[in-house]
C-alpha cells in the first residue's frame, strides 16, 4: 500500500514538474501568412530550433490586429512568449495593455526608415502599402489615392478589414493622412469600388491572384514575388502621387515570455542574418536588419514611394477606435 501511495505521489510530482520541461518550448503568436507553408514560418522554425535545441510552436490568427485582440483577450494568462506581426500603428496601444516586457535586444543592427528606438518592440521587416493591379485586366491604374477614390466603380479592389488586419488599418490611416477630416466622404466613394472586405491579407490577395478583383491593397514589395518566384511582370504596384504609407512590422516579448529565456534569444535571432535572410523572399518585405546575401535585383525594380506617410503612434492610439467606427459606419451604409 505504501509503495502504491509513493508511486502515486511521485507520478503526481512528475506531472507537476512537466511544465518545467515545457520551458524548452517557445510559443509565438503570429499572423496566418507568416506560418503558411510558403511563408517565413517553416524556415524560421527550422533555423531557430537548430540553434536553440528547443521547440518553436507557432499559433496563427487571421492578421496583425486580430493578433493584438487575441493577446488582449487572453490577458496575463496568455500562452504566447512572443507576439510577432504587430506593426507601428499598434505598438503604443499594445504597450498600454501592460502585457509586454522590454526586449533587452541590441538595436544597432536594426535598420528601418526613420530609425528605431523602442525598448519593447523590435522590427523584423518593413514595407509600404500599395495598390497592386493586374496589368492585363486594368489598363489605366490609378495614379493617386484620389484617383482610386474617384475612379470607375466597375474596376474593383479587394481590401482588408481594419478591425483584424494591419494592411486594412494601413489603408484606413493612409486615407486619413491624405483626406484628414474628409476621410468619411472618401470612404463613401471608395466603398463602391470595394469588391469585398476580407479579415486578413491572405484572403484578399488570394482573391486578387484568382482573378476575382483587378486590384488589391498590398505592399510595394508584392510584385517582387511574382517577378522572382513566378517570373512574371503581370502584377504591378501603382505609384501614388500623395506618397505611400509606411508599415514597420514588429515583435515583442510578453510578460509570459519574460520568464522564458528562449524569448530573448529568439528576438536576437530575429535581427540576425539567419532570420533576416528569409524575409525578402518569403514574407516579401524589406528586411529590417543585415542580410548575408544581397536582395534579388527584382527589388530594385519596385516602386519607390515619392513620399513616406505615417501618423504618429500617439495620434493612432488616441483615435484608432473612433476612426475604425467611422469607417464601419460608412461601410455598413
Amino acid at each position: 500500500m505504501r509503495t502504491m501511495l509513493f508511486s502515486l505521489v511521485s507520478t503526481l510530482a512528475v506531472a507537476a514538474a512537466l511544465p518545467a520541461f515545457a520551458a524548452d518550448k517557445l510559443t509565438i503568436y503570429t499572423y496566418e501568412s507568416f506560418t503558411s507553408e510558403w511563408g517565413p514560418g517553416p524556415q524560421v522554425k527550422k533555423a531557430f530550433e537548430a540553434e536553440c535545441g528547443c521547440e518553436v510552436d507557432f499559433v496563427s490568427v487571421a492578421d496583425g490586429v486580430a493578433l493584438l485582440n487575441r493577446v488582449k483577450l487572453e490577458g496575463k494568462s496568455t500562452k504566447a512568449d512572443i507576439v510577432l506581426g504587430l506593426d507601428t500603428n499598434l505598438t503604443a496601444e499594445a504597450k498600454e495593455t501592460g502585457l509586454f516586457a522590454p526586449s533587452g535586444v541590441d538595436l544597432t543592427n536594426v535598420k528601418v526608415p526613420g530609425g528605431w528606438s523602442d525598448d519593447t518592440f523590435v522590427p523584423f521587416d518593413y514595407g509600404y502599402f500599395a495598390v497592386i493591379y493586374n496589368t492585363e485586366t486594368l489598363k489605366n491604374p490609378p495614379k493617386s489615392l484620389k484617383e482610386l477614390v474617384d475612379g470607375d466603380a466597375n474596376e474593383k479592389i479587394a481590401i482588408q478589414d481594419p478591425r483584424t488586419s494591419t494592411p486594412g488599418l494601413g489603408l484606413l490611416l493612409w486615407v486619413k493622412s491624405v483626406y484628414g477630416d474628409k476621410a468619411p466622404e472618401a470612404w463613401a466613394k471608395l466603398k463602391n469600388r470595394v469588391l469585398t472586405v476580407t479579415p486578413g491579407w491572405s484572403e484578399s490577395y488570394g482573391l486578387f491572384t484568382k482573378g476575382e478583383a483587378p486590384m488589391v491593397l498590398s505592399y510595394t514589395t508584392s510584385p517582387a514575388y511574382h517577378m522572382v518566384a513566378e517570373k512574371t511582370d503581370k502584377y504591378q504596384a501603382a505609384p501614388f502621387e500623395e506618397g505611400h504609407y509606411l508599415q514597420v512590422e514588429v515583435a515583442g516579448i510578453t510578460t509570459t515570455g519574460a520568464e522564458n529565456p528562449l524569448a530573448k534569444k529568439f528576438m536576437e535571432f530575429m535581427v540576425s542574418p539567419g532570420f533576416q535572410d528569409t524575409i525578402p523572399e518569403t514574407n516579401w518585405m524589406f528586411p529590417a536588419g543585415k542580410t548575408e546575401k544581397p536582395l534579388d535585383p527584382a527589388f530594385d525594380r519596385l516602386v519607390k514611394p515619392a513620399k513616406t506617410l505615417a501618423i504618429s503612434a500617439e495620434d493612432i492610439t488616441a483615435n484608432r477606435k473612433a476612426w475604425v467606427e467611422e469607417w464601419l459606419g460608412v461601410m455598413s451604409k
Binding site: E32, S36, A62, T198, P199, G200, S202, E203, G206, L207, T209, K210, E212
Partner: peptide
C-alpha cells in the same frame, strides 16, 4: 466546417 471556412478564406477553392 472550420477548416472549410479557413480554406475558403484563403481562396484555396
Amino acid at each position: 466546417p472550420y477548416l472549410l471556412l479557413a480554406r475558403m478564406g484563403a481562396y484555396r477553392t
